[in-house]
Design a protein around this nucleic acid. Structure first.
Lengths: 152, 152
DNA sequence: CTTGAAAGGAGCTTGGT
DNA sequence: ACCAAGCTCCTTTCAAG
């Protein structure tokens, strides 16, 4: 396990908010030279702490106005059943996230669709026909706030 | 609403997977010059379609081994109650995501903690004491897969 | 083992065509 | 849209704390 000092945490916090900031600008704000800052960032990547940089997209502006969270209980939960379910769910393009969880549900899916009619199509033709599905609960996303969290 | 052609979608798809790719490399793969590619990306940002670039972190390697999803029902759901709840929940550092939803639950929280004992502390001292909370359901994250989704 | 300065190379950003 | 030029930033090398 890699030891992180305060500067590393500050870097993670700053880059977590906006990953476009340059190593030079970040270093200047915390009294560090550009190469030193850049090396710390590379070290965090090599340690597997930073796993990637991804875009944040506005789904609404891309014509996907509906996001629904599905809580799924499987009818049969053998090992084969889980694998079958996961393979089949990975083939649904509208599924953005697959979370295998422990509790009232077995899986939680984040599904995005153009509108409610589009969502109904995905639900009926794709989700309800997944292998091993027992029950499906739905929640429609109204708004979402992402916070920095304790990481960093 | 901005019109996107196939190249824009290809760019969003490629950058969605790995936002570190250079405009030059992306353009080369789809037969476009570096400035042309870069201008398309900037256009997508100015249109608000690309809202930011953020780091993906490995919570486990940062010492946060437990992620739990909480489904919360409010006891009283007036307008004031929602605002009180949202303000209070935003002050909990362990909450990474606050989703206001419509369905069986009113809110969904993504909470990260160092271990189960740490999570119990957050749940008892922070979550259960939130204003207006009626009931709390929990699901522990076992594994998570993020997929490109239909965006792009 | 981490730092800073310098230098080379890659990529961004702009202006002209 | 492309090209070219100037500029920023990344990345390596080297010497020093």
């Amino acid at each position: 396990m890699m030891a992180l000092d305060e500067i590393d945490h500050a870097l993670l916090r700053a880059l977590g908010q906006d990953a476009t900031q340059s190593a030079g600008a970040l270093g200047r704000e915390m009294g560090l030279s550009q190469p030193a800052t850049w090396r710390r960032i590379r070290r965090l990547q090599e340690a597997g702490i930073i796993t990637g940089r991804k875009l944040e997209l506005d789904a609404g502006k891309l014509g996907f106005g509906v996001t629904v969270f599905l809580g799924i209980k499987l009818a049969t939960k053998g090992r084969v059943s889980l694998e079958d379910f996961e393979r089949a769910v990975s083939a649904i393009p509208e599924v953005q996230t697959v979370e295998h969880i422990l509790g009232m549900y077995d899986y939680r899916l984040r599904v995005t669709a153009r509108d409610i009619a589009d969502f109904e199509r995905v639900l009926r033709r794709r989700v309800m026909t997944l292998p091993g599905v027992g029950s499906v609960d739905a929640n429609v996303l109204l708004s979402e706030e992402r916070r920095p969290g304790p990481l960093g």
